[in-house]
C-alpha cells in the first residue's frame, strides 16, 4: 500500500495537521487518547471532510481540496472496523456479512466467502441474530463484513479495546490470519504498544494533532521503558513431549516449557526480568533453558539496563540492574549465558 496524506482540520482547542507518506502493509497509529487518531481515520474513510489538503491511496486521489475532489465513503473502498462492532441489528449474521459484498461490482470479488467464513469460524453463526452474539463473535462478524466488501485498505479503530483480556487473545489470531491470508493492507489504531507488537510492523507515532514520526514497531518497543519490564514475544514451533516437558523450536534453538494441553505452534511471552544472566554455563540448574548468547546492545533505563542478545538468529532481551552489568562485564560482543525457567513462558495465542 502507498498512502500519501497531507490534511488539515481545525476543532475548537485542537488544530490537526496530518502529513505523512506510508509504504507499509501492516501499520499502526499509536498515540494518546484525544490526539486525533479517530478523526484521522474518519477523514481517510470519507466520513469527515478535511478543511484542506489531499489524500492519495495507491495512485487514486480520494480527497484533494485544490481540485475539489472528495470521493464519498462508498467510492473509496476503505473499510472500517470500529471499536464496537456496530452490526446491523435488523439483519442476521449472514446478511451482515454479505451487505458490503453484495454492493461490489460483479467480478471484483477477490475474497473467497467460504474461506473467510471458515478462517473466522463463523459457520455455525450464519443464521443467528446479531443481538444474540457474544462480544468476540460480534467483532469477528464485523471484521468479516468489512473484508468481504473487498476494500484496498482496512482501518481498525481500537477493535480490541471493547473486549476483555481473554477475548482479546482469541481475536488477535483471527485478525493476524485474515490479514496474512488475504493480504489486505491495514492501519491499526490503538494506544496499546502490546497490541501493536502483535498486529503491526510499522508505526506512525501521533502527538496532539500531528504525526511525530514513523518507526518500526519492534525498534520502538525495545526503546520504550515499561514499568513491568520488557516483554519478549517468541514465535515457537509445535511442542514435543520430552520428560514431561514441552520442547519447542525457536529458530535454531530448542526451548523447554512446562507442558500444557496445547501443542500447536504459537506466540509466547517471557518477561525480560525473568531471564537470568551468567558469565559461564552453570553446571547444574533447576532452570531448563540454558542459552548461549552474544550481547548485541545495552540500553540504560536508569533503574534497569536492557541487554539485547542474539542467539541462533533470534533476539532476546533481558533486564538486569546496573550492578550486574558491571559484575558480568557486559558489553556488546560479549558471550553470555541466559537462563530461563520452563515456567516463565506464557502463551499469548
Amino acid at each position: 500500500m502507498h498512502l500519501s496524506v497531507d490534511i488539515k482540520k481545525n476543532f475548537p482547542g485542537l488544530k490537526l495537521h496530518f502529513d505523512f507518506t506510508l509504504e507499509a502493509n501492516r501499520c499502526g497509529i499509536l498515540g494518546p487518547s484525544g490526539s486525533g487518531k479517530s478523526t484521522l481515520m474518519n477523514m481517510l474513510a470519507g466520513l469527515l471532510t478535511p478543511e484542506s489538503g489531499h489524500i492519495v491511496l495507491d495512485g487514486d486521489t480520494l480527497f484533494d481540496s485544490s481540485r475539489s475532489i472528495n470521493l464519498p465513503p462508498e467510492k473509496r473502498r476503505v473499510g472500517v472496523v470500529f471499536q464496537h462492532s456496530h452490526l446491523f441489528p435488523h439483519m442476521n449474521v449472514a446478511k451482515n456479512l454479505f451487505y458490503g459484498r453484495n454492493r461490489q461490482l460483479a467480478g471484483a470479488a477477490r475474497i473467497d466467502d467460504a474461506q473467510l467464513i471458515s478462517v473466522l469460524q463463523l459457520n455455525s453463526l450464519l443464521e443467528r441474530q446479531v443481538t444474540s452474539l457474544s462480544g468476540g463473535e460480534q467483532q469477528r462478524v464485523a471484521l468479516g463484513r468489512t473484508i468481504l466488501a473487498n476494500p484496498r485498505l482496512i482501518l481498525l479503530d481500537e477493535p480490541l479495546s471493547g473486549l476483555d483480556e481473554a477475548l482479546k487473545y482469541q481475536i488477535i489470531p483471527h485478525l493476524r490470519k485474515v490479514f496474512t491470508e488475504f493480504t489486505i493492507p491495514m492501519l491499526f489504531i490503538s494506544h496499546s504498544l502490546e497490541e501493536m507488537r502483535l498486529m503491526t510492523d510499522d508505526l506512525l507515532l501521533m502527538g496532539h494533532g500531528v504525526i511525530d514520526r514513523q518507526e518500526k514497531t519492534e525498534v520502538l518497543a525495545r526503546g520504550t521503558v515499561s514499568e513491568r519490564g520488557f516483554v519478549n514475544i517468541l514465535k515457537l514451533g509445535e511442542a514435543q513431549n520430552i520428560d514431561r516437558l514441552h520442547r519447542r523450536n525457536w529458530g535454531e534453538n530448542n526451548l523447554y516449557l512446562v507442558a500444557s494441553g496445547e501443542t500447536a505452534p504459537g506466540r509466547f511471552q517471557i518477561n525480560a526480568r525473568d531471564i537470568m544472566l551468567f558469565k559461564q554455563h552453570p553446571e547444574a540448574s533447576s532452570a531448563r533453558n540454558i542459552l548461549n548468547c552474544r550481547v548485541s546492545a545495552l540500553r540504560d533505563l536508569e533503574w534497569f539496563v536492557r541487554v539485547e542478545m542474539e542467539l541462533g538468529g533470534q533476539r532476546l532481551i533481558a533486564e538486569v540492574v546496573p550492578q550486574s552489568v558491571e559484575e558480568l562485564g557486559l558489553a556488546p560482543g560479549v558471550e553470555i549465558v541466559a537462563v530461563v525457567k520452563a515456567s516463565a513462558f506464557h502463551r499469548l495465542f
Binding site: P73, G79, R103, A142
Partner: peptide
Amino acid sequence: IDKNCIFAARTLGASWWDTLFTITIPL
C-alpha cells in the same frame, strides 16, 4: 439509531439513498 451503523454501511459501499432504505428506515 447507532450513527456508526450508518457510517459502517457507507464504508461498505452503500450510497446515501441505499443506506436510507436498507438501514435508516428499517431501523
